[in-house]
Write a protein that binds this DNA or RNA. Structure first.
Lengths: 196, 196
DNA sequence: CCTATACCTAGAACAAGTTCCAACTATCGC
DNA sequence: GCGATAGTTGGAACTTGTTCTAGGTATAGG
């Protein structure tokens, strides 16, 4: 709400911005190969061409790094979705369609999904600001898919929150091999029934 | 489903059963003090009066240990609930009441909750059997609260799954300080609307 | 009693996340 | 150009989860 704890973080120079991108790219690449465990801070630093201390200056922990990676990926997804919005008839169908599309993206890169989702749910309070950003992005994506005209009602917001919970937790169960793809779909569709 | 990977695990002797209990008690105690990070394997071993190697023989990783701790706690909750079942009129209200009761238990021991929930969502495939046990226990608790007469319908099972997702994920957001107690209540109640 | 077997112990060793340090470098105000 | 400041580097050091080893102990079958 207030801007007190983070005073607008000094804008990065071009070189710094480039370093940051390089680090995020390396992170996504390593995560894509072997998931959470394969993202090793020394290797990220080395492959990104920065010193370990520098990596930690940019991302104060492995979890921070992976949550930032997720934010990065989500922004891409959001862009894609803006270009090709869901086509379903009612809001519930559009939200389900959108989430299933995101889910298919994760199926293409299950290791990357593993790294990001595990980091997200493992994050403690020290990462809450960053996790919150990811959460807001997800909410925005869902609200976009609903395509509502005015401000969402409190009931709609509650429904969206439950859908988001279901989304995260269903992903966790799928990633740990305890739920099938079909099961995830059903769960998402069930949660989406709360919209209408 | 099959019994192939775990051939009924040789029954423990009395001394072994006692060791196991001691370890779980220590785990819960340390977790209660400082959450996930405060449960350090060396300290668990020492306080339980067993060697580190023995601790690892009983619980092959810290996550295994904490998931087993959660299972232990859940069984206690289930017993309590059997003695004093929820009193709401309809199934949805009873489930919400039950989960809010569980939530209040967690509020009394937020650090313990932190350790158990973080372990549960961080668990990878190597722990899926144990996590599955916890999940089944949770499902049983919810179905009990619904107090249904016959076999649950597929729709009811889907609803229960979404409620369970919401429960886990809402806990995670509460533990990381991103949602208030009131918010968790609303989310649980919203998800429970899927029952009726 | 005796030994084979499985279990337990103390502790070293290893792996990866994180912190710290001393020296070097880029950059900005003057 | 010059000093002050902040950022970067390479690398050692520390922490905690996990593995390994060599030897000790309980116990069941003979």
């Amino acid at each position: 709400m207030t801007a007190s704890p983070k005073p607008a973080a000094a804008p990065l120079t071009e070189r710094q911005e480039a370093r940051r991108r390089r680090i995020l790219a390396t992170s996504a690449q390593l995560a894509g190969r072997g998931g959470f465990d394969a993202v090793q801070m020394r290797e990220v630093a080395e492959s990104s061409g920065v010193a370990l201390g520098t990596l930690y200056r940019y991302f104060p922990s492995k979890v921070h790094l992976l949550v930032a990676t997720m934010q990065d990926q989500l922004e891409r997804l959001h862009d894609t979705l803006r270009k090709r919005p869901p086509t379903g008839e009612d809001p519930a169908a559009r939200v389900a369609e959108t989430l299933m599309r995101a889910f298919r993206a994760m199926q293409r890169e299950p290791h990357l999904a593993d790294a990001m989702v595990r980091a997200l749910t493992f994050a403690d309070r020290s990462v809450s600001a960053e996790v919150d950003t990811v959460s807001r992005l997800t909410t925005a994506i869902i609200l976009d898919a609903m395509g509502l005209t005015g401000t969402p009602t409190p009931e709609q917001l509650s429904a969206v929150r439950v859908i988001e919970h279901t989304w995260h937790s269903a992903l966790v169960t799928w990633l740990s091999g305890r739920a099938s793809i079909a099961q995830v779909r059903v769960d998402i569709e069930t949660a989406c029934r709360l919209i209408s």
